[in-house]
């Protein structure tokens, strides 16, 4: 591949981390890739669109970073083990994995239903994460080290009228990550759940109704990088959402049933 970055050897004086980002071609995934590429990190970037990935890798490598592209559809669950092994060998190890792949396909109204969309969201947002994070958890558990980051959503904190499938997929992911955390913390593995609110990405277009407190994905990437360094467990970005969601989570059902958001 002509776009290959210069080999980056890990030595005591030039230590590097090896990271994998799934869902890296756009939005938050791409912002994370750019942020982490500047932190002495070798990156493997996975996404469906080869063209977008290649462009991103070129951009990172031109700035002296190290990123390799692996086009892949996260719904190809059976291909994960072979691809993961190849990635780990190409990177020369694996220190962290970020699952940032996610789609939001609203049913188009609070009285509409769309099983096909719901199924796709669960397949990408939840089952894809499980397909990738299962072998990763096995590896990190064996090594007694590693970091797993999952990008959930404030939408997973409460089932609302607008998009039941999306809520479900993100709630499932949050619960899955919590279970992984409870399993793996005792093995020296760090699991971080990220719950972004509205971000200025493609996905914002899918949002229903008002979109308060929109942040740039670069700001979220910055927050996530800090949380990884401090080994936080669950973060909201922007952090304001922690308090908003606290209130929403504690809103009694007899009120919540009457709300239209």
């Amino acid at each position: 591949m002509s776009d290959s970055p210069k080999p980056a050897h890990r030595t005591p004086l030039t230590p590097r981390r090896c990271g994998l980002i799934i869902g890296a071609s756009g939005g938050l995934g791409a912002a994370l890739a750019k942020k982490l590429a500047g932190q002495e990190t070798s990156l493997a970037l996975v996404a469906r669109s080869k063209d977008k990935l290649d462009a991103l890798c070129r951009q990172i490598n031109a700035k002296g970073g190290y990123a390799l592209a692996y086009p892949h559809d996260v719904c190809d669950y059976d291909k994960v083990p072979d691809l993961l092994r190849k990635i780990v060998a190409d990177l020369g190890g694996l220190d962290f994995v970020i699952y940032a792949a996610g789609i939001n396909l609203p049913p188009g109204g609070i009285d509409r239903y769309n099983f096909e969309n719901d199924r796709l969201m669960v397949e990408v947002n939840l089952i894809g994460a499980m397909a990738w994070l299962t072998p990763v958890a096995e590896m990190f558990q064996a090594a007694g080290a590693g970091q797993i980051v999952g990008i959930g959503s404030v939408a997973g904190d409460r089932g609302r009228v607008g998009n039941p499938g999306y809520n479900t997929s993100k709630a499932g992911l949050a619960t899955y990550l919590e279970a992984l955390r409870n399993r793996l913390t005792r093995r020296g593995v760090h699991v971080l759940t990220v719950k972004p609110g509205f971000m200025n990405t493609e996905m914002l277009k899918a949002a229903q109704g008002a979109t308060p407190f929109v942040i740039e994905p670069e700001k979220a990437a910055e927050d996530i990088f800090k949380a990884m360094t401090k080994r936080k467990q669950v973060i909201y970005t922007a952090s304001l959402w922690r308090w908003i969601m606290l209130a929403i989570q504690h809103t009694p059902s007899f009120i919540f049933r009457r709300l239209t958001f």
Binding site: R10, P12, P15, C18, L94, D95, M139, A142, A143, A145
Partner: peptide, 16 residues
Amino acid sequence: ETFTQLENFGHSLTSS
């Protein structure tokens, strides 16, 4: 399950 974090003698380098 065989994934292991190994070190050099001087503990200045790790490799999985």
